[in-house]
Amino acid sequence: MDNGLVTFFDVTNCGFYRIRQAAANIQKQEELIKGSLANTLTLVTQWLNGREFSQTIPWDVDSNPFKSKVYCKDYYSDPITGQFLFVFCKALTNDSGALNGFIEDAKVGTSDTDVVRVNNKSKGRKLIYGQPMYYWFIPELNLIASINFKHSIASTENVTDYFKKCIDNYIQTQNRKVATRTIYNSKTNRDINIKSVSYMSDSNKFSMTYKFDAQLKELSVDDVSLEKLARNITHLVVRDKISSSKAVQDSLLFELFDKIRGKQSKLKRDKHVEIISEVNLDESELRAILGVYKEEQDDSSDWNNVGFRINNEDSTKWFNSYVDRKHLQIEPRLKKDDSYYPAKVLFEAIKIQQEGLLDFTKQSQLVAEEIKKAVGYES
Rank of each mutant, 00 (worst) to 15 (best):
L5F: 00
T7A: 09
F9I: 03
D10Q: 11
T12V: 15
N13Q: 14
F16D: 07
I19Q: 02
R20L: 15
R20H: 15
A23L: 12
I26V: 13
K28M: 08
T40M: 13
T42L: 11
Q46W: 04
L48I: 08
G50Y: 11
R51E: 03
F53E: 02
N64I: 08
F66L: 14
K69C: 12
V70K: 08
K73Q: 14
P79C: 10
I80D: 12
T81M: 12
Q83K: 14
F84T: 05
L85E: 07
V87G: 07
V87L: 13
L92E: 10
T93F: 13
D95M: 09
D95W: 05
G97M: 06
A98Y: 12
L99M: 13
F102C: 00
D105P: 02
D105R: 10
K107W: 00
K107V: 07
V116Q: 02
V118D: 00
N119R: 05
K121E: 07
P132Q: 00
Y134V: 02
F137M: 05
L141V: 01
A154I: 08
T156H: 13
T156P: 14
E157M: 13
T160I: 15
F163V: 09
C166H: 09
I167V: 15
N169E: 07
Q174D: 07
R176L: 10
A179G: 02
S186Q: 08
N193A: 11
S201I: 03
S203I: 05
K205Y: 06
M208A: 03
T209Q: 06
Y210A: 06
S220R: 09
S220L: 10
V221L: 03
V224S: 06
S225V: 09
R231D: 11
N232I: 08
I233H: 01
T234A: 08
H235L: 04
R239W: 01
K241M: 14
K241A: 03
S244M: 07
S245F: 11
A247W: 14
D250I: 14
L253Q: 01
L256I: 11
K266L: 13
K268M: 12
K268G: 14
R269L: 11
R269E: 12
K271I: 12
V273I: 15
V273F: 04
V273E: 04
D282P: 06
E283I: 03
S284I: 10
E285G: 02
I289R: 01
G291I: 11
Y293K: 02
D299G: 01
W303L: 14
W303R: 03
N305S: 14
G307F: 00
I310G: 04
I310R: 09
D314T: 12
S315P: 01
T316P: 06
T316D: 04
K317D: 06
F319C: 00
N320Q: 12
Y322E: 00
V323T: 10
R325H: 09
R325C: 04
K326Q: 07
L328G: 00
K335N: 06
S339E: 03
Y340P: 08
Y340F: 15
Y341V: 08
Y341D: 05
K344T: 02
K344S: 07
K344C: 03
A349N: 08
I350N: 01
I352F: 04
G356Y: 06
G356A: 07
L357K: 04
L358S: 05
K362L: 14
L366M: 14
I371P: 00
I371A: 09
K373D: 08
G376T: 03
S379H: 10
